[in-house]
Nucleic acid binder design. Structure first.
Lengths: 346, 346
DNA sequence: ATGAAAGCGCTAACAT
DNA sequence: ATGTTAGCGCTTTCAT
């Protein structure tokens, strides 16, 4: 492996192997018609030359860059980081590189990122759109797969997300089986699709269980710890007394509610039961551990990659995939015998 | 903006603007000699043509792909996710795209990722090497910057990390000022550079404070929650009685130790004081909140990008940067008046 | 099964 | 200040 100034190209390899450069190209590409013996010889020559394929040139000529984009709100958010990890794992298995962009819930940044992806000539993208209109995505012009709740807005597109309806059923049924009444719903930011999906799932479940959805006590949050604390304060102020059950639309609000409850001298789970939604790592270390519904973040990333591969290959199923969530029982939910129910109004 | 089958190229723009394609190229590139008026006209033509630069072609011709690589152990780990976020933010400001790879602490995967980066013709890379030899990095052949503890092994290379010595000083001094004796040291995985750096910083600090480092009680962990639990059990078994102070080399072990202490009926911070290291989000929600030393993860990512830019530009400072950490006081450390010290042996 | 030749979209001399 | 020309490294017809 001589140290060259110039990096070796297929021409160098061709010379070394005593063949033409098209033969080298064929040896390098997978399904090409070539004599196995010549291929071996070429590959050996490539090895001794220290040759490495120039993906820029390959991409330019073949129209396949071997890269895909991932556009998520925040790579530092544990949920999205897990999604990224799943996508990256799968991409790696397929020899695909991943370009990662954080949109920061900003419409303009997202648009710029989509443009950057196009200019990088990625083969496709996995996107959690903050855009409320289809415009930017429509203009995207490349194959893509949507992830997360906002996918709901784009019915014509392949998407991968978690099964919110199943998740809410899981949570509510667990609460009921423990002898709880309908919990306070700690909702997320208004106008966010995720909020509407959560609420609709609760409503559907109520109707299926013959409960009047209108009686559901709700409180607005904004998916942050602080929002959870504030909402909890308001719940405490309005609550008539007795055990309080909370179902938060995400873990951060649940954790915030737990902090505020404790500061007010309330014990979780004896006085307050809190059920979260997401499955963030922090829920494992709170006291008590946060019982929550875990979204399959990494699996979402993996499946999104698979769906994107289909899209790129042109096998346009345009599938909408909802992955099931699972309940993580950790101790923030009280076990209330049905007999005790009366006392809770006291 | 007509809908073309073929994506417009500079030739289309040139035709539309009535100039040659080199003029278009000049209008598009930043520091080129061109009449401002023609540039405007060309840019306008590009806009109406719906032209978007092909970065693959640009990269191929100019030798600059406009992409850099980020190789970290695990994008799903909150610390590395923050680093990634910092690097991505800065990259975005400079119009650079980020290729992200998780090495999973695996030597072979890392080597494959470095090869992939070379083949993608990235302009450079930010790397946390798991490699214990310089070989792979030496062969890398592209500008790069090291991040994290392992950088210690490669003195000739630009690196960005946290100032462990300052961090340890911060923690130990705080412990002393609260009236604690030297704490049990909960160390990380043997043979990991990070472990040695931490230990050396403690020793240095001891010597500076005229304490015999040999008396330091240590316990081995492996940077995981489980490792922290196991180590805590051993500490509990060997501890003669009285208040226990723990200084863990990372937050996960600290959190594990906290869980075990509570399970053994010990109160934190009354019976056990625990000091962590990292600043993971979970520490905010434990009970009590974990007092810890926060590493400037996002800033490390940002600075790493800046250093890499220097390397790429050829301004080879080969700087070693250590960013300061800060103490996050959250309640897992007891305030022990000096007078109380005697009781701790009781 | 292999080689020759054309060209992907762009930049960088070199002319003018 | 702008145009002309020659590739960057590769894939892909089209011959042979």
């Amino acid at each position: 492996m001589r140290r060259l100034e110039r990096r070796p190209t297929i021409i160098d390899v061709a010379r070394l192997a005593g063949v033409s450069k098209s033969t080298v190209a064929r040896a390098l590409s997978d399904g090409a018609e070539i004599n196995p013996k010549t291929r071996e010889a070429v590959l050996a020559a490539a090895r001794t030359a220290g040759y490495e394929r120039n993906h820029l040139a390959v991409g330019m000529r073949s129209g396949r860059s071997g890269m895909i984009g991932l556009v998520i709100p925040d790579i530092a958010n544990p949920f999205w980081a897990e999604v990224a990890r799943g996508a990256q794992d799968r991409a790696e298995e397929h020899g695909i590189s991943l370009l990662v962009f954080s949109s920061n819930w900003d419409h303009d940044r997202e648009a710029r990122h989509l443009a950057a992806l196009r200019q990088a000539r990625v083969d496709g993208a996995i996107i959690n759109p903050v855009a409320d209109s289809f415009d930017d995505l429509d203009r995207f012009g490349l194959p893509f797969v949507l992830i997360g709740s906002s996918a709901e807005r784009f019915p014509e597109t392949s998407s991968v997300g978690s099964d919110i309806a199943q998740a809410v059923r899981l949570g509510l049924d667990n609460l009921v089986s423990r002898g709880h009444d309908m919990p306070y719903l700690l909702l997320g930011t208004k106008a966010r699709i995720a909020r509407a999906r959560f609420l609709r799932a609760v409503y559907d479940h109520c109707i299926a269980r013959d409960v009047d959805p209108a009686v559901l006590p709700t409180e607005d949050g904004d998916y942050t710890v602080e929002g959870g604390r504030a909402a909890m304060s308001r719940i405490l102020a309005r609550h008539p007394g007795g055990h309080i059950s909370i179902f938060a639309a995400n873990d951060l609000m649940a954790l915030g509610a737990m902090l505020t409850a404790r500061e007010q001298g309330l014990n979780c789970p004896d006085d307050v039961s809190i059920l979260g939604f997401d499955g963030v790592p922090a829920g494992e270390f709170s006291w008590p551990g946060l019982t929550t519904i875990e979204k399959p973040a990494r699996a979402i990333g993996r499946r999104a990659f698979d769906s994107l591969s289909e899209e790129i290959a042109g096998r346009a199923d345009h599938s909408r995939i909802y992955l099931p969530c699972r309940l993580l029982e950790r101790g923030s939910l009280a076990d209330r015998a049905p007999v005790q129910r009366r006392r809770e109004v006291a």
